[in-house]
Structures are given as structure tokens and as C-alpha cells.
Design a binder for these strands. Sequence first.
DNA 1: ACCGGAGCCTGTTAGC
DNA 2: TGCTAACAGGCTCCGG
Length: 270
Amino acid sequence: MPELPEVEMVARGLREPLVGQTVTEVRCYWPRHIHGLSVPELQKGIYGRTVKSIGRRGKYILFELSDGQVLIIHLRMSGRLSVVPAGTPGDKHTHTIFALNNGQELRFWDQRKFGRVYLVNNEEEVVGKLGLEPLSEMFTIEVLTALLKGRKRVLKPLLLDQTFIAGIGNIYADETLFYAGIHPTRLSETLNNVEIGRLYAAIRQALNLGIERGGASIELYLQPDGSSGDMQNAVRVFRRTGELCYDCNTPIEKIVLGGRSTHFCPYCQQ
DNA sequence: ACCGGAGCCTGTTAGC
DNA sequence: TGCTAACAGGCTCCGG
């Protein structure tokens, strides 16, 4: 499941092959991926446009085009983006192909078909409701303290709320709470200043480790060059149900919170 | 304000 | 062994 670190790796990997290239053709075999406009409208809107820059906001990848429009792609559960020479064989999960003027193609592959493609004049139409970027300078302990203040929310679902903080998904939420030593069922308003400080550091530690490790190839995630990440070998609790905590040897437990499986150490996390 | 559930999907896995 | 049903999960929408 691509989360902030995985999406960041994808955005980085796409810059070199895509920035400066011009889209000459779009082929779409699963139109429901395209959100807010028809396939012909997407084709008309993107043909002849050049990719000026590639960025990331939360789990969204933003392609700024030469005419000011923004192509936005969300990988959701199983989306992959790759750049390959035209004519490279695809498979039944290759849903949308953007042909480029240099003979290469940007391909959107998505086994579970949850991913989405947008083309908008203003990126805020899509990412406007997202919370702060947790790795930006804007995100400080003071800001996090203010965000937690007066809220009565279970911590794990709150971390997954993209309008609270952008980019955290199930893997990094569980890892974050382990690093912070905080139980996932704790209510936001019950955290004291020391715990908020630990939570703040843990969010950045978990996400930065994910980026350093090239993302977590736990489900279907691959980097644009086809290589897998290594974060799955560095997780402390995620999907380690029944295995022993590396710190205290207590078996890792699994519960469901907000409809999401949640893994934690019942001894280390209070 | 916050929570829970359904729905969107397909491949894998658990259970009969 | 072979089948079906449950499950995974990001996000949105709906109802409580």
C-alpha cells in the first residue's frame, strides 16, 4: 500500500525520465480510473502538453503541465507507475498508457483498480482538504499539540485521517505508535506533552526510515524502475501478529480499529 | 464531532 | 483436493 514514503519514492523516480517530455497519446482500458472527466476530455486536455515538474502532496503524485494544468495520480492500494519503451508488453492490469515524444511510455498499472487519475486546472480541487505535510517545516510540535487539543478521537484512526496529517497509512501509523510507545486506542486529548513530543518524533522517524529504505514492498508496491523497497524488513509491529516484540519479547497483538487491522506491543505501548 | 458500515476491486488464504 | 467465503485496504459517502 503506497503511503507517503512509497509515493515520495515514485515521484523521485519519475522526474528523470519524465520532466521535459511531451505527451503525444493517451490510451485507457479502464475509464473508471479517470475521475471528473471522460477519456476523450483527458486526451484532448493532455495531448501536446509537456511535464514541467513532478511533486507529491500526501499520497498524491502531481504532474505540473506546461499549460498550467495538473495531472494527479493516486495509487491507492495497488497502483504502480513505470516508464518503459513503447511496445513493451503489458498485462490485464495495465489500465492507462501515456505515450511520450521520446518513444517512452508512462504506464499506470493497478491490480485492484482503486487508483485514480485527475486532470485539473488547480491542484487544490483534489488535494485542498489534506492536512499538513508531516515532513515539512510547517509541521512542528506546537502545531501537532494544537491539532490534538480538544479532539476526542482514537489515535490510530486519527493518524489515518488525511485531513489531520497527509500521507500516513496503515503501515506507518502502526510503526509510528510503536516508536512513540503509545497504545493505538488512546484518545487524542489524553496525551500529555511528553507523549506528544514522542508522537511527533515518531511520525518523522517512521516516515523518514520508510524513505531511506525505499518504501515497503509489503503488498504490491514497486519503485518506478521495478525494484522493490526494503522497509518491510524494518517493521517493528506491522503484520507481526504473534511474533515477539524486538524490545521486550512480548507477542505482538492485532486488533481492528476504524475498520483497519492494527498491530502493537501490549507491553511497550501504553 | 466522531464513529461505524457499505461499496469499490482482485488475488490470496482460510475453512469446509 | 477443490470449492467457496472471508479478508486485505485508501478513500468516499451515508446514517447514527
